Simulated assay, not measured.
Amino acid sequence: MRNEVTDKRKGRLEGKVAFVTGAAGGLGRSHIRRLAEEGADLVIVDICRSVDSVPYPQSTPEELHDAVAEVQALGRRVVARQTDVRDRTALQEAYDAGLKEFGRIDIVVANAGIAPMLVDDKLEAWHDALDVNLTGTFHTIEVAIPAMVAAGEGGSIVIVSSTAGLVGIGGASNGGLGYAASKHGVVGLMRTYANNLARHSIRVNSVHPTGVATRMITDPAIVDFVAQDPILSEEAPNALPVDTVEPVDVSNAILWLVSDEARYVTGVTLPVDAGFINRR
Rank of each mutant, 00 (worst) to 15 (best):
K8E: 15
A274V: 08
S161D: 04
L177K: 14
L118R: 15
P116E: 01
P61C: 09
Y56P: 03
S162P: 06
Y95R: 07
E70M: 13
A80Q: 02
Y264D: 14
H65K: 15
T89R: 15
V85L: 07
L166E: 11
D260R: 10
V160C: 03
I145P: 11
R86D: 05
L255I: 05
H200C: 09
I231R: 09
G25D: 13
P116M: 10
I105R: 00
D229K: 06
K183V: 10
R86M: 12
V167G: 00
A198N: 03
L270T: 11
I222M: 12
F225N: 01
L35W: 09
I105K: 03
L270A: 03
A227T: 04
A180M: 13
T266P: 12
E70D: 15
R88N: 11
A164C: 07
S233V: 08
Y56H: 03
D243G: 14
M148E: 04
A221E: 13
Y56A: 08
T244W: 10
I145M: 11
E4A: 14
T210P: 02
D249P: 07
G136N: 06
G171E: 00
E14K: 12
N3P: 03
H31T: 12
E234L: 14
P271S: 09
L74E: 01
E124D: 14
L189N: 05
G171K: 01
G39A: 07
L64K: 04
P146E: 07
K100E: 14
L177A: 14
L177P: 03
V20I: 13
E93K: 13
G26S: 08
L91C: 09
V160S: 04
D224K: 14
R81T: 11
T60D: 00
N196A: 14
D260P: 06
V45D: 00
A236Q: 15
Y95M: 10
D106Y: 11
V258K: 00
I159Y: 06
M1P: 11
A262P: 03
W256M: 00
T269P: 06
T83L: 06
I145W: 10
V51H: 10
D66E: 15
A73S: 15
L27H: 04
V43K: 00
V132I: 13
E101I: 04
D66W: 07
G113K: 08
A97N: 04
A213G: 06
G178T: 05
